[in-house]
């Protein structure tokens, strides 16, 4: 499976993501600059964490206008997997690929800790590997991870089972404890926690592997 990890000016989790996909999950990975205009040949695209464009204006607000985002939108429309982690999630909401927005944490502090997450929907192409696992532990590291959407949007998210991960102990004030959501089609996932930072026991947790294992298994099945 061939992944494109997009590198915006200010991305800082791009190499962690590439390490997780290449060295741990044995996939083909290219770091693709934000100036790229095509993503032809890739099976999936990842928007990594960081502070793209210095978080100027709002987190993700400038990144969504980068040249590569036209190709990211085309991938999403074609049903290919699109994963946004942390700043990647913020970019996906700013780009309109996912509903809602990420606000400053309720505490107004940057939060860097391990978070316990409930797998709200284990039947997505990002979570099947977590079958039978009620909760997982993933690191979070963000100042603006406080998910917001209005009541109508929340009702819609629930109705279509788009809430994928929920915090057990809501650290940032997110509406409905939301840590990660997907689009209605189920191919675009945005999440604040960092699965790529939890892929080797040496790093303290392998609970992030499930996201990548699920994606890879889904891709293999679709080609079988």
């Amino acid at each position: 499976m061939k992944f494109a990890v997009i590198v915006f000016p200010g991305s800082n989790c791009d190499h962690d993501m590439a390490n997780a996909l290449r060295d741990v999950c044995h996939c083909t990975v290219d770091l693709v600059p934000a100036t790229a205009t095509t993503l032809a040949g890739y099976d999936a695209v990842v928007l990594p964490g960081g502070f793209s464009y210095g978080d100027y204006l709002r987190s993700g607000a400038i990144a969504r206008l980068a040249p590569v985002m036209t190709a990211v939108k085309a991938m999403a429309a074609a049903g290919k997997p699109v994963l946004g982690v942390c700043n990647g999630f913020q970019i996906l909401t700013e780009a309109g690929l996912l509903p809602g927005a990420l606000r400053a944490n309720r505490s107004s502090q940057f939060i860097c800790q391990t978070s316990t997450l409930r797998i709200s929907n284990p039947h997505t192409r990002f979570t099947t590997a977590y079958a039978g696992q009620a909760t997982i532990q993933l690191p979070i590291a963000h100042g603006e991870g406080n998910y917001y959407c209005d009541e109508a949007t929340l009702a819609e998210l629930r109705q279509h089972h788009q809430i994928v991960f929920e915090y057990v102990d809501n650290p940032n004030g997110s509406v409905a404890n939301i840590a990660g959501i997907m689009n209605r089609q189920g191919n675009v996932l945005g999440m604040m926690p960092h699965p790529e930072r939890a892929v080797e026991a040496l790093l303290g947790s392998i609970d992030g592997l499930g996201v990548f294992a699920s994606l890879i298994a889904h891709e293999e099945e679709s080609h079988a």
């Binding site: 204006l57 206008l65 809602g100 927005a101 606000r103 917001y148």
Partner: peptide, 8 residues
């Protein structure tokens, strides 16, 4: 389109 995020 840009200066505000009308969601919030």
């Amino acid at each position: 389109r840009l200066l505000a995020n009308v969601n919030m």
